[in-house]
Amino acid sequence: MIPNDRKYTREHDWVKIEDGVAILGITDHAQEALGDIVYVELPDVDSEIAIGDSYTTVESVKAASPVDSPVAGKVIEVNEALDEQPELLNEDAYGQFIAKIEVTEVNEDALLTAEEYEQLLAEEE
């Protein structure tokens, strides 16, 4: 269910770090809690993000949810398909990233393994 190839945050976001690049997205639980996603406010490519900065805001009809970054660095790519089709996040939250950041620092304390995240979900139930 919960992919084993990446880490998670307590705020229901995922991050996958490969070759110094962090790929960021939201979890299936997050998209389900938000409901139909209508807009993803993508960060500017080349913008600098600090740990804890909200790098994107994901909107549904009745909610706007800022997403905080567990890493610091420069945005090198955003998922432009979300501009036209924000619903992709609803359809495949783990398959769709939001942004890629060239990492200078990682807040390891904030990151959970798949197992720990699964446990968190169970606790929140």
């Binding site: 807009y39 805001t57 009745k62 800022p66």
Partner: peptide, 13 residues
């Protein structure tokens, strides 16, 4: 529409 920009949803944001 686009109500998620507004104060009743986004409050201080």
């Amino acid at each position: 529409t686009l109500q998620a920009r507004e104060q009743h949803i986004r409050r201080d944001k």
